[in-house]
Structures are given as structure tokens and as C-alpha cells.
Design a protein around this nucleic acid. Structure first.
Lengths: 233, 233
DNA sequence: AGATTTTTATGTTTTATAACAAACTAATTT
DNA sequence: AAATTAGTTTGTTATAAAACATAAAAATCT
């Protein structure tokens, strides 16, 4: 299990981090202005329409970013994994959050205070450029998702979501079970359908031998078929 | 009518441009590496899956950015107006275009060559920061749109599209007619519905006295009502 | 351990919207 | 000006998915 202290280390000293290559002084300065805390399952990380305090980096666990839609039906915009940033869109746009974030399991997240981060960025074009690239990439995913969610049918959307979960969280040690135990409701919110239809379609996939179901565990039996279902829409 | 020469001026010397405040030398350098050209109506500006050559700025006219979906049904991701950038997501993500761009009317667009732009950005954190802000803002719009398109009903989606057109292009001198003469098919692609349903729903709105229709001209009679329809979804 | 709530499951009905069809109108081309 | 093509309109039918309903199972609380 990770601690709140070791979390700062992941954020600033792992080679994949955009902060890995910044100067020693900048690193020390940001470190002093970063706070980590842990979240229980289903705890709010930030709330729609509030102001970002800084850049939040997920260090351990899983967080969903979602918008509440008409009739209480949520729409999951994004899922975050350790090492990923959350809520940075609003921060850099200078806006309030457009969505809320809630942990899906016990999680640790670190917040780099806004002004400290900005002052470092203003003197480090490479850092700003790296963040720009990351945001641009995310915008691409978001645009693709818009098309998928609006044009694919239920089976295609669900298949795409399962592939997305595999991509994001990978498998347990068995190499088959998706390493994410979402509720059926969350799977529905991710795939833009009602919970009933998510359950129904999952069990159809299971009957067809594409996946296996054991409670919240989803075993992927036939990835190729899943990709095919996702592609034909 | 704008010329290709005066277009460069808009891009670098208008106070709203992100390039307005860059140094004189940088401006001259970018100016040398910028090319403007005009496009006929329905001409391709860039094609999905090709590599961006630089940052494209629309100087005059209107351009739609769209993705071809299943069964030839397009999805308009974004509409650009003079002063706006197009295709910058792919450029900064270091990817090929995920969508295509086509002019909706006679247009002029300027392209700042990629490497020239990047070298200026690497030395001007403020410029990079400004572009980051702009991208973050767009990502917000994109996320909101995802939720609207997936959760609102036909009437709500169409009303939202009309309001979006007003916001983007404003009115003709009469203060009533939307300054954008889109085909019914484009209105459908923007609202994620079939052309038939776009036409049908437009004429329902007209019957209800919310809008007036004269060919492709759409007169907004009751904005409040339109906002209400958009909000209730 | 029992009670209560939440989550999952499945069947039935209703409805919004796509798909199809056919005609009419406007815009281009020859 | 006639012919051709592209775009618009309206009506009908088919269908995917939501809404509703009920029950079983699992998780949580007392």
C-alpha cells in the first residue's frame, strides 16, 4: 500500500512524470507546495462548479470524472489511474470545474498549489509544452468518444467501454480479469446507457462466450470479438 | 472582402490574437513562415489521418471540423469562425488529424509552419500558456457537448445547436437571422440526428413560433423559449 | 443474526428516433 | 431553356433503447 509521503515521490521522481526533468530548485519549490491526502471509496475529490486549488495528480487508486446529466443519469467523462492528472482542464482554462470527481476505491491524490505551479511553468516552456501535449491528446480521446457515444449502438458502446477499461487498468495476474471492479451503474454511465441495459448486454456477451462474469469481475475471453463488436458499432 | 495579405495582419496584429504580444523579431520570423490561401465553398482544408503541416488560422469564412461516422453519417465536432484556430489539437498532440475540415463558404486560412511556431513557443512561455488556456477551454466545450449529445432529446439538441450557431456567428443586420446558412444536413450533423428529423423538428419549432424559416435563413423569434427547450433537454 | 438498503437480474411495455419511401423544390450544368 | 442533380419536405413503418415493474442476491447496518 502506498503512503501519502511516497506519493510525492511518484509525482516528481518517476521518469514518466512531466516533472521528472524540471530543475532541482523548481522541484523543491513545488514539493513544498504540494499536499497529498487519501480518499475512502466513493469519496468526493472535487465538485462541479467549484474552483480548482491546484493540479491534482492521482497517486494510487481509481477516480471517475463525471457530469450529472438529465434525470440523475451520470455520464463518466474520464477515468483516472495512478500517475494521471485530474481536473487540469478547468485549472488551465481558468474556469470552475465542469464535472465532479469521485474515488472508485481507496485512493491517494496530491495537489500542486496553483500559483506555485504557474510560476514554474512561466519559466519552463518545456514543462508547459509537455502539459499542452497531454491536454491535446486528451481532447482527441474526448472527440473520438463523442462520436462513439452518439453513433454506436448499445453493444458497440459497451464493447468499447470494456476495451477502454482494459487499456486503462489492465488485467489482474490471471491475465484475463479486468483490473477494475466497477458497479454495473458505473459501467452504464461510462457507456451511456441505462443500468438495466448494461446488465442485460453484459450477460448477452457472457452467453455468447465473449466474456465471463463473476460478480463484478469481468473476464475477457475473446478480445478479438470484443474489438469486432466495438468496430461494427 | 479580405485578401490573403490582409489575413496575415489579422493573425499577428489584432489585439485579440495570441500572437499580438510576442516580440517583434518573433513576429517577423513567424510572418515569413506563414502562408495564406483561399478556399472555395465545400473545399477540403485538411483530411482525417494526415499530418498537420502547421497551425491553421481561419481568417475569413466558415469551416466545419467533422468526423465521418458509421453509415456515412457525419458528426460535426466544431465550427470555426475568423480568428479561430483549426487542427491545433493534432498538431500539439503530435498526431495525425482525427477529423476532417471543409469550408462552408468561401474562406481564407493561414498556416504557420510547425517548426517555426514550436521554436518560438519554446522560448515564449506566455504564448505557450495562452495556447494551453485556449485548448483547455475547448476541451471543456467538447465535454459539455458529449453530455448534451448523448443525453438530450432531439428538440433539446436542435435548440442547443441553434443557440450555438448564434453564439458562434451572431446575427445578420436585422438582429434576428442567424448569420450562418447551413444546409439541413449540416444542422443534422451538428445536432446528431438524421436530416429528416432536423427538418421536421425545425418546422415544428417554426409552427410553435419559436423560429421563422425562409430557405436556409433561420430567424430567431423567441430565444428564451429556445433556451428553455435546450435546458429541459 | 436479523433487518434494511443497495445492487443485480430479467421480463414487459412504451416511445423516441432511425430507416425507408416518394414527391416536390431549388440549384447547377449542358 | 431543358435536363440533371442536389437538397428539402412530409408521411409511414420498423426498431433500438428507455421506462417501468418485480424479484432475487449481495452488502451494509443495527
Amino acid at each position: 500500500m502506498k503512503t501519502e509521503e511516497s506519493s510525492k515521490d511518484l509525482l516528481f521522481n518517476s521518469p514518466e512524470s512531466v516533472f521528472y526533468t524540471i530543475s532541482k530548485e523548481d522541484k523543491e519549490y513545488l514539493l513544498k507546495n504540494t499536499e497529498c491526502r487519501s480518499y475512502k471509496k466513493n469519496e468526493l475529490v472535487f465538485l462541479e462548479n467549484t474552483k480548482p486549488a491546484g493540479l491534482i495528480c492521482l497517486s494510487d487508486g481509481k477516480v471517475k470524472i463525471f457530469k450529472e446529466g438529465a434525470g440523475g443519469r451520470d455520464q463518466i467523462i474520464r477515468l483516472s489511474r495512478p500517475g494521471g492528472f485530474i481536473g487540469y482542464r478547468a485549472l488551465f482554462a481558468g474556469q470552475n470545474y465542469h464535472a465532479s470527481a469521485v474515488s472508485l476505491e481507496v485512493s491517494i491524490a496530491c495537489t500542486i498549489e496553483k500559483n506555485a505551479l504557474f510560476s514554474v511553468m512561466k519559466n519552463d516552456p518545456n514543462l508547459t509544452f509537455a502539459i499542452l501535449k497531454s491536454l491535446a491528446t486528451e481532447l482527441g480521446v474526448s472527440n473520438m468518444r463523442t462520436v462513439s457515444l452518439t453513433q454506436k449502438h448499445i453493444r458497440g458502446r459497451l464493447a468499447e467501454s470494456l476495451l477502454f477499461l482494459i487499456e486503462t487498468y489492465g488485467y489482474f495476474d490471471d491475465g484475463l480479469t479486468i483490473k477494475a471492479l466497477l458497479s454495473r451503474e458505473d459501467i452504464a454511465s461510462l457507456s451511456n446507457m441505462t443500468t438495466s441495459n448494461a446488465i442485460r448486454t453484459l450477460s448477452t456477451f457472457a452467453q455468447e462466450g465473449v466474456i465471463g462474469l463473476e460478480g463484478r469481475r469481468i473476464k475477457i475471453i475473446d478480445v478479438k470479438m470484443l474489438q469486432k463488436i466495438s468496430n461494427i458499432g
